[in-house]
């Protein structure tokens, strides 16, 4: 009884020593539970990916990984609060393409891309575009041609969300315009598409497969996916490139920490995640959501965010969303 308490006290002392000791003790990272902020609500895809990760990560790191759901503003609130946490590697968050790079260009978020230490990209989903099954547009080219002469409306999950920006950048590249009508979520956008309020829908590819029956019947038609090659979950849908449009874009999620986390900790986390993402079990679980495992290391991920920002900045200026 008494002995147990001494052991516990000793553990606490070691833990506190490690916290005060700083870099010298960093080798022993992690010595306490890690909090993972999921900037979306329970039950969403991001939440489920985070929970999928938590168990294998706990095993690899030897410390509990506690999920904290902090939804709001398409993921920006959770990230904003992450940047206020101590950069010791014990608070991390799931960031996404649009929240890390584009969001701070638009509104007062309290952070920018430099407020983070990138750790690893986890998954990606190709951006895509869909129309109603009775729509006159059979191919992406039909749609682009039509946009040159008439004004069409499209929708997607939220203004300045990943899908909206993906389509806006594509349209800007083609030199055409379309009216964006906001939806609260991809499903809400689907309602607008099916009710005839908008002519096409931009969304992550993962939203589409569940809408098709076994023999391929559906209320919608997916015109193209902006992936490098045909997407394994929808092999019948051609890529943008195949249809003559050189455009590749994907929505992705990755792990980030506040700026200033020691390099050893970043490397430690990043390597553990790499090993985990590359296991067949993880990919298999991801298939349930139609996600692709897509590991990228800290430097490459940082580069990706910066590149996205450069592509998106002129488009944001054009549609009037760039922050003054």
């Amino acid at each position: 009884m008494f002995k147990k308490q001494i052991v516990r006290l000793a553990r606490i002392a070691v833990a506190m020593g490690a916290m005060i000791g700083g870099p010298a003790a960093a080798q022993e990272y992690p010595v306490k539970p890690i909090q993972m902020i999921v900037p979306f609500g329970q039950g969403g895809a991001t939440d489920q990916v985070a929970r999928l990760m938590a168990a294998p990560l706990e095993e690899a790191l030897g410390q509990p990984v506690v999920i904290i759901n902090q939804p709001g503003a398409g993921g920006a609130i959770g990230l904003s609060n992450l940047t206020k946490a101590r950069p010791d590697g014990y608070t991390v968050a799931i960031g996404s393409d649009s929240t890390l790079g584009a969001r701070p260009l638009m509104s007062e978020t309290g952070y920018d891309a430099d407020s983070f230490t990138m750790i690893a990209r986890l998954v990606q989903i190709p951006s895509g575009v869909a129309v109603r099954v009775d729509s006159p547009y059979e191919t992406l080219n039909d749609l682009v041609q039509a946009l040159k002469t008439e004004r069409l409306a499209y929708s997607g999950s939220g203004v300045a969300s990943g899908p909206h920006l993906a389509m806006a950048v594509f349209l800007a590249q083609q030199g055409v315009q379309a009216t964006f009508v906001n939806s609260d979520s991809n499903q809400d956008g689907l309602v607008k598409l099916l009710s005839g309020e908008v002519d096409f829908l931009t969304g992550g590819g993962s939203n589409f497969p569940a809408l098709f029956g076994e023999d391929g019947q559906s209320d919608i038609r997916v015109l193209g996916l902006a992936a490098e090659e045909r997407w394994s979950f929808m092999p019948d849908v051609p890529t943008y490139r195949e249809q003559g449009f050189d455009y590749v874009n994907s929505q992705w999620f990755g792990l980030v920490a506040p700026a200033g986390v020691p390099q050893e900790i970043v490397d430690e986390l990043s390597s553990k995640i790499k090993a985990m993402v590359e296991t067949p079990e993880f990919s298999q679980r991801l298939e349930g959501f139609f996600f692709n495992a897509a590991y990228l290391g800290p430097t490459e991920m940082d580069g990706l965010v910066k590149e996205d920002m450069q592509n998106v900045r002129p488009v944001l200026a054009e549609i009037g969303l760039l922050k003054n």
Binding site: G72, A73, A76, N81, M106, S107, E108, T109, V159, N182
Partner: peptide, 22 residues
């Protein structure tokens, strides 16, 4: 209050990022 869903403009946020989501 928060980021206007239609236009993406922030309204009545008083410089508080936590109000972005309304």
């Amino acid at each position: 209050v928060g980021i206007d869903p239609v236009s993406g403009v922030g309204r009545f946020m008083f410089g508080e990022p936590n109000l972005m989501g309304g």
